[in-house]
Amino acid sequence: MEVHLKIIGVLLMALASIHVFFPKYFSWKEELKSLSLINRQMMTVHTFFIAFVVFLMGLLCLTSATDLTQTKFGRTIALGLGFFWATRLIFQLFVYSTKLWKGKTFETTIHIVFTIFWIYLTSVFLRTGLK
Rank of each mutant, 00 (worst) to 15 (best):
M43V: 10
L81T: 05
F94G: 00
K6E: 09
A14D: 01
F125G: 08
A78R: 09
S123L: 13
G80Y: 07
G129R: 10
I116T: 11
K131D: 12
T115S: 15
I116A: 14
T63P: 01
A16I: 02
T128P: 14
F94T: 09
T108E: 09
L32D: 10
K102F: 08
I8K: 00
F125Q: 07
T44V: 08
K99L: 11
I119P: 02
T98W: 00
E2D: 14
I110Y: 14
T44H: 09
K72Y: 05
F22S: 06
F49I: 15
L12T: 00
S64A: 14
G80D: 11
T105V: 13
L35F: 14
L32I: 10
M43K: 06
V95Y: 11
F91G: 12
A86V: 00
L79D: 11
K24C: 04
Y25W: 13
F117H: 05
R127Y: 07
L11P: 03
G58D: 02
V113Q: 04
L130S: 14
R40V: 13
T66K: 15
T76I: 12
G58W: 01
F91Q: 11
S64L: 05
T66I: 08
I77A: 09
L59E: 03
L130N: 13
I38K: 06
F84R: 00
E2F: 05
T105R: 14
S64W: 06
C61G: 05
V3R: 09
I8P: 01
A78D: 08
W101N: 12
G103M: 06
L89T: 02
T47Y: 00
V113P: 01
S97N: 05
K29C: 04
I8H: 01
L59C: 12
K29F: 14
V10P: 00
T47W: 01
Q41I: 03
S97W: 04
G129S: 13
T105H: 06
M1G: 12
T69R: 08
W28R: 02
I50D: 00
G103V: 11
V3C: 00
F49Y: 14
A78F: 08
K72M: 05
I119V: 15
F84E: 07
L62N: 01
V3W: 03
L37P: 06
T69I: 07
G129E: 12
W85A: 07
G80R: 05
I8Y: 02
Y120T: 03
L68V: 08
V45A: 07
T71N: 09
R88A: 10
R40E: 13
L37F: 10
I38F: 05
V3D: 08
S123H: 06
T128N: 07
Q41N: 10
T98E: 07
K104P: 04
Y96G: 03
L121A: 00
Y96E: 13
R88L: 12
T69S: 15
R127H: 08
S64Q: 15
L126F: 12
L121E: 01
F84C: 05
Y96T: 09
F55R: 03
L126K: 07
T87V: 04
T105L: 15
A65T: 07
I38Y: 03
S97V: 13
A51H: 04
F91P: 01
G9R: 02
M13W: 03
